[in-house]
Design a protein around this nucleic acid. Structure first.
Lengths: 228, 228
DNA sequence: GACCCCCCTTGACCTGAGTCAAGGAGGGGG
DNA sequence: CCCCCTCCTTGACTCAGGTCAAGGGGGGTC
């Protein structure tokens, strides 16, 4: 209802939607809070809703006949889950339960599908959002397997300052350790890379602000063979 | 036209489609062969088609005003490209050119869109396919950052034999070095892991067949702390 | 049958990055 | 004003896994 539900735009599925799309979708949406270990839905139940995780973490798992549990996936904030089965219309193939205290946005299947059925362009925007995300993720995988930690850090800095290309500072809103883990690097390593970049006067660090002093040199360093 | 165009099912976008969906889509599709370095489309041109890469490799890049080229993405076989812009309807934001000799399936935008417009369920199946792929890729990223090479190899073996759960052999159709790179490991390391698994009698290797002897033990080894 | 070629295996070595541990530095609360 | 807590930095060490290099098969060709 209120605009704070617009957080769902952070999910690739909704990233390309227009404000009116979102308003329509969110008309019957509600935020639900789950305590740690509380069940969200059960495998085998008719898929009545899809979910967007606002905060906390959620476990998708199945139970073997012996009763032991196999974790299929752990959902982290800003991701949707159970959307696949909603598109196909069926039953949940897995159980879902909150790992830690969690907030989710619930979007009822029937409402969701009927909107999409009448709104072809919106479906297209969803397809576009998802395919962008797929390409992004493929890039991430590539960068994890064939770039060094230093290259990834440099790449991240470049990606952050590329719009404001000039001499603007990157203001690190999120704590450095979160950024580090986002690019697949330990906080210590991240710190060390910044230190060497500082030493080479490619960047200047002041508190939470990072100035890229020489964009081109930084790019060269990232792609570069020379790593003295 | 002929059923060999059904290879496009390997792309997440088409993975969930029904045979009749595919036949419909492929009605006006054609295979195009590009020589290395040949251009496929130019940035700024109206997006007239989306592509599925059958073999070879394709470079997506943009040109700076100085004329130097920035590679945005390298497309590998079984992936689609330019689908995002087709969904939104617009102009190609980047140039595309074959890196090596390549075969692509071309699907015309107007044909594609009009089919989707009249076939809501098919759009749903595409959404489902893409969201499955997104979840898969997120898994891959997680596994690359927080599992060891050994765990990934074990995980791969388990994923390959899980349907035929029993004592069936996994027949490695694709060369081992390709499998290795698929799971983010060098061929040598892959080989070494197989060797230790063989030593522990968790698997038996005969030529290109790999028997998983003890599924549970292998799972334990994968998750396990003990790594003697 | 002999040769070759490609793919796989194994060994020895090296290095990138993670781990562990010990300080700073800022900043909010008492 | 001091204390503490959280986040960041730096150093020393370790180790997984990549690199380089040297064999071993197996299967196709002539």
């Amino acid at each position: 209802m209120s605009d704070d539900l617009f957080v769902i735009r952070r999910a690739a599925l909704f990233a390309n939607l227009l404000p009116e799309d979102l308003r329509l979708l969110l008309k019957n949406a509600r935020i639900i809070r789950f305590k740690a270990h509380e069940q969200i839905f059960a495998a085998g139940a008719q898929a009545a809703a899809l979910y967007f995780l606002v905060s906390g973490s959620v476990r998708l798992f199945s139970l073997s006949s012996q009763g032991d549990e196999k974790v299929i996936e752990v959902i982290m904030p800003d991701a949707t889950f159970a959307e696949g089965v909603v598109f196909l219309g069926g039953r949940y193939p897995v159980h879902a339960a909150a790992v830690t205290d969690s907030e989710v946005v619930e979007l009822a299947t029937h409402h969701f599908s009927s909107i999409l059925a009448n709104n072809h362009d919106m479906a297209m925007r969803m397809l576009a959002g998802l395919s962008t995300r797929v390409h992004q993720l493929i890039q991430d995988v590539a960068s994890l397997t064939l770039e060094t930690a230093g290259q990834r850090v440099a790449g991240y800095l470049l990606s952050q300052c590329s719009p404001t290309c000039g001499n603007e500072a990157i203001h690190m809103v999120i704590p450095k350790n979160v950024v580090a883990s986002r690019i697949g690097v330990k906080a210590e390593t991240f710190s060390r890379v910044l230190a060497t970049l500082r030493g080479r006067e490619l960047i200047r660090v002041t508190g939470n602000d990072i100035h890229v002093l020489d964009r081109d040199a930084l790019m060269r360093w990232r792609d570069g063979v020379e790593r003295t």
